[in-house]
Design a protein around this nucleic acid. Structure first.
Lengths: 247, 247
DNA sequence: CTCAAATGTTTCACCACATGAAACATGGTT
DNA sequence: AACCATGTTTCATGTGGTGAAACATTTGAG
């Protein structure tokens, strides 16, 4: 009890439970209790509450819990007016048509990144990217961009984490970030996903903050190191235009 | 304290707060406190918790709260495989093309209904229906269908509510429901929305339960009582096919 | 068919923790 | 400056959330 809590524990736990459903769309009581390390009966009471408010429902067949209609209703009321995923979609489609590869848009969320939008390549062999996916911030071109261009305070916090050093291989990491800032883009070849390569750039909004990372990715067979570097200027220009569109 | 609460009050309150954002996408602290009748400081603590978990964010400019990225992330993990709004969209588009008017899909949620899907008429003068809208269950063709074909227990609960009698005009209401069940469809002319008329039918799923209500609506200038009755058989046939598609 | 193991549900005594009043801080308006 | 509205922090109080344990129910194994 060193520093005061100005938060409500029961609510924190309930929200943690909800987030469990991003890993598995159907969960049982004991399963949830195991995931967040609480007693069955505590979870049961929280689930009853969530169910009563229709944030979760019980599947009639399996007796397990799923996300409920209120989550869906809330999501329709997300203010879309300034949502990059909506505003930038047309520009991303143009970029996809020009380069012929899958285009993705990422936000940093804590120590992860989230793919908030994606338009798929229409070639036969293509990378298929899932919107809403939570990915590690330690590997991949987009990750390096998001870290390299993060606000100094945020970056400091990430790099000072004791776990971080282990996750990013080699002491050259800080040097890499410096290079990325100088060049303005990052590349990755089979870093997170075997067989896949990508190039990513930051999207800087009107206020000069890095609002997101934009990436083009595909099979290594088509995306050689050389090709990635050729794509970079196209991405940089596209990102510049996109940056003007978002607040 | 007559009957035991097996729910968690703090969580209930937090969820109620979240649902406030369906009425207004940007809310201040005092505003929220007023809406759910709690003390400022209580709401403040709950908001801090919601903010820490990124279920809400504070708008940099206005200092007010908005829904956060976790709500968005959760929504992408809603199991879409058996979501009527997704499964029935193509069929709804075909119906729109055939009749030329706006087609909507509704679910009952407690004592309201939710528009979970809509495809707009492409005529110059048209009804524009917003997906995610929460509407009263007391008026409108879809409402009458949802009530008339609700499970007996649910219907009983609705009709026995003392408030209900006042909201539905006239004692002919129960009789109306009986008519609707016999005919298999309901109509409404300027009942909820001035200048608008609609015809609605139930969608019965494979298990024989009423899964949703399907409606066609437009301006009264085009949808006379006669036209609505002509549309009804088309709707009934479309709803029958749709019912086979959902669990 | 019986017993055991796993999952979900309810009960209960304890005291941590959520609560709301009040004081404090801040910024905008007259 | 004085005021009002909004957000933030402090604090005493006792309610209400907690987890152990008992109970209920289903599933599977032997």
């Amino acid at each position: 009890m060193e520093d005061r809590k100005l938060t409500v524990r029961a609510v924190e736990r309930a929200l943690d439970i909800l987030m469990c459903f991003t890993q598995n769309s159907e969960l049982g009581l004991t399963e949830i209790a195991g995931m967040i390390g609480l007693h069955k009966s505590t979870v049961h009471r929280l689930m009853t509450t969530l169910e009563e408010k229709a944030f979760v429902v019980r599947d009639a067949a399996t007796e397990k819990y799923r996300l409920g209609i209120k989550v869906w209703e809330l999501s329709t009321h997300l203010s879309q007016s300034d949502d990059p995923a909506v505003l930038l979609l047309p520009a991303m489609e143009r970029l996809r048509d020009r380069l012929g590869e899958t285009v993705s848009l990422y936000l940093r969320d804590g120590k992860d990144r989230l793919r908030i939008q994606a338009v798929q390549s229409n070639q036969a062999i293509r990378r298929v990217a899932q919107v809403g996916a939570r990915l590690p911030l330690t590997v991949g071109a987009s990750s390096k961009v998001l870290v390299a261009f993060a606000a100094p305070a945020d970056q400091e916090e990430l790099l000072s984490d004791p776990d971080w050093a282990e996750l990013v291989k080699g002491g050259s990491y800080v040097r890499q970030l410096q290079d990325i800032r100088e060049r303005g883009y990052a590349t990755s070849i089979e870093e997170r996903e075997p067989g896949a390569a990508a190039v990513a750039v930051p999207i800087v909004n009107r206020n000069g903050n890095v609002a997101a990372a934009l990436s083009v990715s595909g099979p290594v067979s088509r995306l050689s190191s050389e090709t990635l570097n050729e794509f970079a200027p196209v991405l940089i220009e596209a990102a510049r235009e996109m940056g003007l569109m978002i607040p």
